[in-house]
Design a protein around this nucleic acid. Structure first.
Lengths: 133, 133
DNA sequence: GTACCGACTTTCCCAAAGGTAAGCGCTTAC
DNA sequence: GTAAGCGCTTACCTTTGGGAAAGTCGGTAC
């Protein structure tokens, strides 16, 4: 028993578990677009073209494939509203919403990270201008 | 001003920001192995073969490439200890540690997700045995 | 001097991800 | 009846990821 207090160092098994958990999570959330898509639809249900406008850079082919994938895995539902013309709305399921904390932390980190990259870019271009003169 | 209280609905720009943040984050954390590797090394600095034993499934080629990548991006450092024989230890930088919250949430979610998948597998195999009889 | 370990590198190969561009079936607008 | 918008699909191609297996280079142990 090397775990006398609850906040002692995590045991080896706990580490292995969290490693396995992360690997399992990434298995379904793999690729460039799944998390951005889920985030976009958790914020607001949208139609195909609206998504494509928001997530700049994704092609219709890839978007269609990713949406199918997300639906199969229970993250979103595709709803057809019989208006004229029909409106096809993709909306996040409750299961998607269990990712909220993950998305929040990832967004926070992404913001900080961009700042850090900007910093180092400034330094790089500074040393470049100095070196090239 | 549609934001009378701090906890009002997030504005459109805020949504767009968080989307951009997540996309930027995934740009450096892409692939199957980066987050698992960072997690493993944040828990404890290790040598090459130790990592390969912990992250089962990764080949030495891919591991070498990912480690180089992570070093270039400032997530880990490669330290050579002049013992005999030399020990090469990969350790997480402080910058890696800024990912702690992301990793914790991802691990938590991964654990829940595995439970959910197990559940649905049980249901599927039940209906399969019923259908096939 | 031969065999083994650690830390890779190299080669070869395959599959999946993803980009580009065009097209299609339907419907409404003009 | 022609054009435009929506929600895709298809075909083609390049890039990337990644697995298997063998090789390499400097140790050290015997």
């Amino acid at each position: 028993m090397n775990n006398q207090l609850n906040n002692a160092l995590p045991s080896t098994e706990e580490c292995a578990h969290s490693l396995k958990n992360v690997i399992d999570a990434l298995y379904v959330l793999n690729g460039k677009w799944k998390l951005p898509l889920i985030l976009s639809l958790v914020q607001l249900a949208k139609r195909f073209n609206e998504i494509q406008n928001e997530i700049t850079g994704i092609s219709s082919k890839v978007l269609a494939k990713e949406l199918k994938d997300l639906e199969l895995n229970g993250f979103i539902t595709r709803k057809v509203y019989p208006t004229t013309p029909v409106a096809i709305i993709y909306e996040a399921t409750d299961y998607s919403k269990t990712l909220k904390n993950v998305l929040r932390e990832l967004s926070l980190w992404g913001g900080q990270h961009r700042e850090k990259v900007k910093q180092s870019m400034r330094l790089t271009s500074y040393s470049l201008t100095r070196d090239s003169k």
